[in-house]
């Protein structure tokens, strides 16, 4: 499987509904290689739905997502995407090494053992490879999960709340890993509501609320102030008579 090659992705007026629930409406943004884009917003803002759409797990109700200049689709596209989900996507009964080798195999990597060793090394768990994932702490699982998502060196990396359950040292390590990916030319998109940890990491911030883009900023600093300001502003606007926001 030759992974698709693209150097940017554009989300063009994308909406996704679940029955009558409008999870996302008219979202547009662009993400480039060598940059980290943050999807920020409170719970229920549509961040996870947006990631599922980008990961091809869901199809948009309307609008388009284009990877590069279009064309990429199906297995070739999936081979170029790595996803760290809300759940760890690991089998708790299997060891870290077995999990990594299994997924490396699914991505068509030839030398499973070498790929798994490399991933364990990067995760800082070289000594724990033969322990069952169920015996790991939340932070260790998250590290294995991240390396699982990156095992095929994807062009597009999607992360859903990657900082959850990490202590300061692990969060810092994750930050370093992400800047490493950026330097390696990946398109990194992460969804989070943890602004303190995202601070300083993002090249571009897209603020979501109730399924809409309320603000986008390049090279954002003072995220928290920006966020508080934005949410307050939108909050008062939403209090106005509005039949759709129920």
């Amino acid at each position: 499987m030759t992974p698709a090659d693209f150097d940017h992705l554009t989300v063009d007026d994308v909406s996704r509904h679940f029955g009558r629930r409008r999870a996302l409406s008219h979202i547009s943004f662009r993400a480039d290689r060598g940059a980290i884009l943050g999807l920020l917003g409170p719970n229920g803002a549509g961040k996870s739905t947006m990631l599922a759409l980008l990961a091809t797990l869901l199809r948009p109700t309307s609008g388009r997502i284009r990877y590069g200049d279009g064309g990429a689709a199906g297995a070739a596209l999936r081979a170029a995407i790595g996803v760290l989900g809300h759940d760890v996507f690991l089998y708790p009964e299997l060891t870290a090494r077995e999990n990594l080798e299994f997924f490396a195999g699914l991505y068509g990597i030839a030398d499973l053992g070498a790929a798994a060793s490399r991933a364990l090394e990067t995760a800082g768990l070289a000594g724990r490879g033969n322990d069952a994932v169920s015996s790991f702490s939340r932070g260790m699982r998250q590290r294995v999960a991240l390396e699982r998502a990156l095992i095929h060196q994807p062009r597009l990396v999607l992360l859903d709340e990657p900082f959850t359950g990490l202590d300061d040292a692990s969060a810092e390590a994750l930050g370093r890993r992400l800047t490493g990916l950026r330097a390696g030319g990946a398109i990194v998109i992460l969804a989070t509501h943890d602004l303190d940890l995202a601070q300083g990491l993002l090249d571009r911030a897209v603020f979501l609320r109730d399924g809409r883009v309320v603000h986008a900023a390049d090279r954002p600093d003072a995220l928290r102030a920006m966020y508080r300001d934005l949410m307050a502003r939108v909050g008062t606007a939403a209090d106005a008579p509005d039949l759709t926001s129920r």
């Binding site: 509904h17 029955g19 009558r20 409008r22 509005d242 039949l243 759709t244 926001s245």
Partner: peptide, 10 residues
Amino acid sequence: IDALYLSMDT
């Protein structure tokens, strides 16, 4: 009805 409901975009 669903489509109308969803088209009421503010």
